[in-house]
Amino acid sequence: MIPLAWYLTFAAALFCLGLYAVLARQNAVAILMGIELMLNAVIVNLIAFWRYNEPENVSGQAFAIIVFAVAAAEAAVGLALIISIYRRRETVMAEEIDMMKW
């Protein structure tokens, strides 16, 4: 059986990739994709821990299901907000969305 650590390393790498996308990308859609990667990393983590710790306790599975339900809702709202700003400004680049600065 593949050891737990491999899954955790995979999830950590996925999480860091997502975090890098969030911090480095300028396009709002790309940032949203980075956030989705981070959430996927969490789901991998949860399922791996559930399978290896105590499979008879389903709270890890329940947690994972809740996370991807929330991720879907979040993506829907996020895309709606991106469309709303695209209609006003014709851009989704973070550096051009800068009406308010101190």
Binding site: A28, L81, I82, S84, I85, R88, R89, I97, M99, M100
Partner: peptide, 8 residues
């Protein structure tokens, strides 16, 4: 515009 930007 400001509200849309705040939301995003």
């Amino acid at each position: 515009d400001r509200s849309a930007e705040a939301g995003l």
